[in-house]
Nucleic acid binder design. Structure first.
Lengths: 343, 343
DNA sequence: ATACCAAACTAACACGTGTTACTAACTCGT
DNA sequence: ACGAGTTAGTAACACGTGTTAGTTTGGTAT
């Protein structure tokens, strides 16, 4: 009754060869000369028995698990509303599958990150890892280099030696604000995507600053605030901004997801987009183009980000030096209808 | 220079005991009597060396990988815009972490599903799996039972013996349409969430039918069509419906994600929600409450679905018979502002 | 003094694979 | 005929852990 496990020994027995030969055939070892007839016998036996090599045994002897990990360094509550995660995942899955790897997902609560990193790495559960949304104050990142597990960051940590793939957040933000400036706006509010400790956030604010400065517009720090990933935070921040009564005519919200909430707050205040306030987002999540009005935003190549990270990681895992240690992908201004020209 | 791997033997040496003792201490085996002093010595050594047990070796000997798999049975393009996936993942991660398991994500392209299922199961990469969005015509599901890997389906396949967790799609859909009926609508269009082959889809349409029938309203099959997961499909279907010129006053769209597109199509046709057409969705994705107008919808307890599936799976993996073989969770009508009362 | 027993530990096997070093047989040029 | 090389295959070890059966040590009852 109990399903007997099928091992390579069983295959060997059925094919009338040794276990070694089975291994040589299945792994297509080129040094060994196995005549076609024998190979076929082995394949036949494999098929008959439905044999699948035990990954644990294989991992043990080869010292590699053939899996990579995607580590999310955010609170689950923030991940919940992340409209990008699915794209990241499909991007990773595509590459991972092509290379016969598996994808492990792990989230670390900000408290004891160190443990988790080391655990995963040392336990050899994964051969490499992709870190998403790194934080500036993440001390565990330093330790990571000691463990010596191949790592790629999606998102740049400027003062780190680790490999990374990212967009130029600063430049992209500037592109967005420059666009608003071209439309004639001068009083422009800014809601960033996340708290300052997440690296992309201050970068995007800096881009906002760059644009205003280049245009010779005086900065009003009251108009700058930091969201917290989800729409609710956008709603709250926009409400606060409106309470200041500063009469801004446009807002740069450095995350479409946060912009969703910001827009709701504008509506609640009786303000229309773009008639009363122009709104430009960041990311181009799927929702953006179907919003009412369709949201003008900066397109972040989410899937490319994921794929490139993954490919880079695989290179590193194979001991190859990737062409770029820090790869920067292009962003693109996507003009829709949420910004109007000021007369 | 080369980082030497730390094994339990090293720990044993440092602590001045045998490797067996180390294992007994670390796994807290109750039969063995290890005095407190020795235990402390072992823990000390573990800490000093930064020892972490090799998972592959552990998996090999214990015949369990301590990982579960989430298998997505959809095209990547559909997963991309799935606003629910993040919630599912955080739900799973929460439970998984609590039980010291890992989460593996796998997508199977509809073509060769069988292989993938079997591969994962036989290779012992995972101890159990959660299937999302099962399809009616999925023959591999049958084979799955043969392999004998614990499996839970998120989404019900009525004629299958497998364990499952789902909502009552039919009843939930009826709730939605009943609400529209109460508001006085009688010409109600229906766009389902997915092609008919995905089980939830025909169920929801059936709920729509139930409601109309109970109200004694004649059915117009032209008003029923099937979306395809993403907003674009909603846009297309709604456009087709409008082209029929059937003058419906309300639409039940069995997926918020599809509803996003449907709403855009209405807008493109110069129709306002809810003034011209009332719109009710399904799922209550994060976007729904921030939509303009806020979308009335049926709340699907995504995270609960994930958690319950996971808990059920863990029960099964431990050989326990879960209380319900087919668990049904509650849905809830969430009234917002996308439906108006007809006079 | 001997038998017995519990406490504290350990030697040795099993898990299923990849791989190296080796053998036996067969071919071939001289 | 004979050494050299090739071909086809295998025995045996390594990977790092969990676990069983067994061994020593020291104490205690008979």
């Amino acid at each position: 009754m109990t399903k007997k496990r099928v091992t390579s020994q069983d295959v060997a027995n059925l094919a009338g060869v040794s276990r070694t030969t089975v291994s040589l055939v299945l792994n297509d070892v080129k040094g060994a000369n196995i005549p076609e007839a024998t190979r076929q016998r082995v394949f036949e036996a494999v098929k008959t028995l439905g044999y699948v090599p035990n990954e644990a045994a294989r991992a043990l002897v080869s010292q590699r698990s053939k899996a990579i990990g995607l580590v999310l360094t955010r609170d689950p509550s923030h991940i919940d509303t992340d409209a990008f995660l699915p794209r990241i995942i499909t991007g990773l899955l595509e590459v991972v599958k092509k290379h016969n790897l598996r994808l492990l997902i792990e989230s670390v609560n900000v408290d004891h990150q160190d443990q988790v990193y080391l655990q995963l790495a040392r336990a050899k559960r994964i051969d490499g890892m992709i870190l998403s949304t790194p934080r500036i104050d993440d001390t565990a990142l330093r330790q990571l280099e000691d463990v010596g597990i191949p790592t790629v960051m999606m998102g740049l940590l400027s003062d780190s030696d680790l490999y990374s793939v990212d967009v130029n957040n600063r430049l992209a933000a500037r592109k967005a604000v420059d666009y608003l400036l071209r439309l004639g706006h001068t009083k422009i509010a800014c809601i960033s995507n996340a708290p300052e400790s997440y690296t992309a956030s201050p970068d995007r604010v800096q881009g906002y600053r760059d644009a205003l400065e280049a245009a010779g517009i005086e900065m009003d720090n009251d108009l700058i605030c930091f969201g917290d990933f989800d729409p609710q935070s956008g709603y709250d921040r926009m409400k606060s901004l409106l309470a200041l009564d500063k009469k801004f005519t446009a807002a740069f919200v450095a995350s479409d997801n946060v912009a969703i909430g910001a827009k709701a707050a504008l509506r609640a205040a009786g303000l229309k987009v773009p008639d009363d306030v122009s709104l430009i987002g960041f990311d181009d999540i799927p929702w953006a183009q179907y919003s009412d009005p369709p949201l003008t935003t900066i397109r972040l190549p989410a899937q490319e980000l994921a794929k490139s990270s993954c490919l880079m990681l695989i290179d590193i895992m194979q001991g190859l030096e990737p062409v770029d240690k820090k790869l920067i992908l292009e962003t693109e201004l996507v003009v829709r209808s949420s910004c109007r020209k000021l007369d």
